[in-house]
Write a protein that binds this DNA or RNA. Structure first.
Lengths: 334, 334
DNA sequence: TTGTAAGCGTTATCAA
DNA sequence: TTGATAACGCTTACAA
């Protein structure tokens, strides 16, 4: 490996001077500048980032915590964050947490030891206490964490209201909800939006709300139970698209026609929803944008070195996309 | 930040001794061992990995290059590699290359400067020359790179033969192929397998092979053209599932019934294929396994520090999964 | 404008 | 069994 010392020797200057041209700090005369640059390119010298990190205490790396990159919602988030990171010269570390608090803590520790500069976290298990100790720039993404950690999310409650209203508009009389996991702020908010719309109706029944965990398999089983126990249900709002697909499968398994006997709407807007049969209506998030925004905020946070600044939460809008799974029933009694 | 010096001071020993207990190298008396451990836990001391990396020249990080994490085949690969990395105490860096050679080179350089210990690469654009200079452990995944870089792949050619044979068995008489990008070894091999089976038939026509790039959109357009130009085509082997989905959409757009008028089979075995209509037959790769294996090989490679060792390429088997898109036509003239 | 030298937090060599 | 101390490759006071 060729070091700054080799360059200095070849250019017949001190390492300090080489460092100066490398970082464009301090003044160097045009003549020596040229000599140094020549030496650098002649030796094909590339500064050692580890040494830099050691001195500076920062690594030019950011990390993203996701529950599981195999859930199709997260790759887009990851892609966006990586694009932004790389654009700003940051290296991008990906951590699958499985929503496991222990794992999250282990990762946190490891990253801290590596002087990672900041972290974007999708989590509903991490306590803010754990992160107070951390003293690292953090942005919560998709789900809020406590109240004093900057967050990038969408307006889940309002979007959920819209989704349920849409089901009503296409003629649904008994609408159930398959919710996301306990403690996930987005799951709570989406459920709240559902309740806002149907909670006061005469038919509403708390057992119309099923616990889910954002996976298709679980939602499939939950929907099976739900539809067998409550055959009168003619609309389901699933808290994410993956669960929406699970509902679609359950409906198919039970011979329930979608949308004629059961209308279904999901949440997220993943590409998957376009290729199911029927295609899945959804509340589409601007997924790439929120991932990119979170990364931008984090990096700005890092660059300004402003650790204690309270950062306003950012909320994006969600867009209703109507597809076959909620196509208006023409033969409806409405 | 608390350093090894703080620990030494508190335990009233030298930093060398602390380092010894940290790394379990050299002998320390039980008494001092205890004192040091007490000091460590009292101060909640965690060694600085950057300093370690600087001294050792290795970082305990590995990277994965994928063309695009949003292509559903790659998250599973990434998940597997990350699992293995983390199991071995390595930090996992993800790089989206977009199949762009420039980007790959940029990443390579950046990672080298960070003393990344090794890289798993999915690429068809990186020249082996570029990597010879690199002098870093590398494993090629999914696609081969040159001949002297260890690779983990599947038996693409044989699997392609199987796929095409399966189309024949369900009654297809004119089978087309939508291939993967030029230069990608897996695309070449899959095409070779296709030609092995149909190249000598009397109906074979080179224009039955369409250029594709492993994306659904492109395949959609290609299939549209293909099916309009050659209405006699009754079977398509798409070189990956994403393109298979594109073909399904094209068939739907043209009013061609799948599988009755057109049978379709893909490659990869992504979950997406289970929720399309009709569901998509495929040659399923053991995706997680190959990702995990690549990471295991890389880390073993790193740990044994055996840079020049020639590593045998590893080839996994692929499994035919029959779904609706190739369901045997009972009213076939066969 | 340039150079010297003291760190950054480790590990490992060599003495004691 | 322990402790000084010289690296690792860089940046930045501080001097010259």
């Amino acid at each position: 490996m060729t070091t700054i010392r080799d360059v200095a020797k070849l250019a017949d200057v001190s390492v300090a001077t080489v460092s100066r041209v490398l970082n464009q700090t301090g003044n160097v005369s045009p003549k020596t500048l040229q000599r140094v640059e020549a030496a650098i390119s002649q030796l094909n010298y590339q500064p050692n980032d580890v040494a830099r990190s050691l001195f500076k205490g920062r690594s030019k790396m950011i990390a993203l915590f996701v529950p599981d990159i195999m859930n199709p919602f997260f790759p887009e988030l990851a892609r966006a964050a990586e694009d932004v990171a790389s654009k700003h010269g940051y290296t991008f570390v990906l951590c699958n947490t499985d929503g496991d608090g222990e794992k999250e803590l282990t990762y946190l520790k490891a990253l801290k030891q590596k002087s990672v500069d900041g972290i974007i976290i999708v989590s509903s298990t991490l306590s803010k206490d754990a992160m107070a100790h951390l003293d690292l720039p953090i942005i919560a993404l998709d789900r809020k964490i406590g109240t004093n950690i900057a967050a990038v999310t969408v307006n889940n409650r309002k979007a959920a209201q819209q989704a349920v209203t849409h089901l009503q508009e296409v003629g649904c009389k008994r609408i159930a909800h398959i919710r996301g996991p306990q403690g996930a702020s987005n799951a709570e908010d989406r459920m709240a939006g559902y309740i806002d719309i149907v909670g006061q109706t005469d038919w509403f029944n708390p057992s119309f709300i099923c616990e889910g965990d954002y996976t298709a398999d679980h939602a499939y089983k939950a929907a099976l139970d739900l539809l067998q126990q409550h055959p009168e249900i003619d609309g389901i709002f699933a808290a994410n698209d993956l669960m929406g697909v699970g509902v679609l499968k359950a409906a198919a398994a039970l011979g329930k026609k979608v949308p004629d006997e059961l209308a279904v709407i999901g949440f997220d807007g993943i590409a998957l929803g376009e290729v199911t049969i029927p295609t899945l209506s959804t509340m589409a998030q601007p997924t790439y944008d929120i991932g990119a925004r979170a990364a931008e905020m984090l990096i700005e946070h890092i660059d300004t070195y402003d650790l204690n600044r309270f950062v306003e939460p950012v909320e994006y809008e969600v867009k209703l996309i109507k597809r076959q799974s909620t196509e208006r029933r023409t033969n409806d009694d409405k």
